[in-house]
């Protein structure tokens, strides 16, 4: 149940994320001044929170999507294994997001 709701919610978040990526590309095309403005907003703590949320949504939606493809192949359809798949999707999203951001901070690409 939670897994299914999160799949939709993360999908809606990524819908907004596609708009953010399009704004990023538009600013890149518009030139250095516009791009600097975009970076200033999106590297602020609030901007980083948006990126963090989008990356978590991407990792979760990916895992939940694979879960659906597994179901479509006819596997994991008992209530017990379906719940296990949902739990593992959430665990994967949390671990992958944490690892992704740990690497970004440790490599010095992102700083608060």
């Amino acid at each position: 149940m939670l897994g299914s709701i999160l799949h939709r919610a993360s999908g809606v978040a990524l819908y907004a994320g596609a708009a953010v990526v399009t704004v990023w590309l538009t600013c890149l095309a518009a030139g250095p001044a516009c791009y600097a403005g975009f970076l200033a907003i999106m590297s602020s703590p609030l901007g980083l929170l948006v990126w963090a949320g989008l990356s978590a949504a991407a990792f979760y939606h990916l895992a939940a999507g694979v879960r659906h493809l597994v179901w479509d192949l006819g596997h994991g359809l008992t209530p017990r294994s379906a719940s296990a798949l949902a739990t593992w999707s959430i665990v994967f999203a949390v671990v992958a997001t944490a690892a992704f951001w740990a690497w970004l901070f440790i490599s010095g690409r992102v700083a608060l």
């Binding site: 791009y35 970076l39 990126w51 990916l62 992704f100 690409r109």
Partner: peptide, 16 residues
Amino acid sequence: ILWGLCSAAHLAGGGY
């Protein structure tokens, strides 16, 4: 999407 996430990480912190 995995490539996209890798690219985003690669581009993070870089400038224009």
